[in-house]
């Protein structure tokens, strides 16, 4: 099966969640390449570096609460550099908090494809990696 999503990034400071995420994706065979970053800042630096053009992700799973640069700050920084990125990157906001404010904000943000509530909703995950959510978005 040819996965529409080749590379997925996970930006999160929760090591255990990142481990579980990887493990889940590997067991399910959803995606072959997963790269993780401990916070938004390191991910932005990677995106800014033009030598990484071959290694850009198809989707980003972005946590909200992180030190150094949190999810929302990452979105702001991403808006500023997205013109320089040739590839369409889909961002999913991932959070264990179900703050109504965050949900509304995510739904109305043009750069955010959707939000996902932790830990892992297997159906939603399957849909994301099959590219279903991306197509409809």
């Amino acid at each position: 099966m040819n996965n529409p999503i080749q590379t997925a990034w996970i930006i999160d400071d929760d090591e255990i969640y990142k481990y579980g995420f990887r493990k889940y994706v590997t067991i399910k065979g959803l995606c072959s390449k997963i790269v993780d970053f401990p916070n938004g800042s390191e991910a932005i630096n990677f995106l800014k570096d033009s030598s990484n053009i071959e290694n850009l992700p198809d989707v980003i799973f972005l946590d909200i609460d992180m030190p150094v640069m949190n999810g929302w700050e990452f979105i702001v920084a991403f808006e500023q550099i997205k013109a320089l990125i040739s590839k369409k990157i889909h961002i999913f906001l991932v959070t264990s908090c179900i703050s109504y404010q965050d949900i509304v904000r995510a739904q109305n943000h043009p750069d955010i494809t959707d939000y996902i509530i932790k830990p892992i909703d297997s159906q939603q995950f399957a849909a994301v990696f099959k590219g279903e959510l991306i197509k409809t978005a």
């Binding site: 929760d14 255990i16 969640y17 579980g20 995420f21 493990k23 889940y24 067991i27 399910k28 609460d65 264990s96 908090c97 932790k118 830990p119 892992i120 297997s122």
Partner: peptide
């Protein structure tokens, strides 16, 4: 609530993985 929720989430995730693996 947020903090406890993330622990519970991770526990749930690990237990699922344990079953699947």
């Amino acid at each position: 609530a947020h903090n406890l929720r993330s622990y519970v989430g991770n526990l749930q995730l690990m237990l699922n993985l344990h079953e699947e693996s």
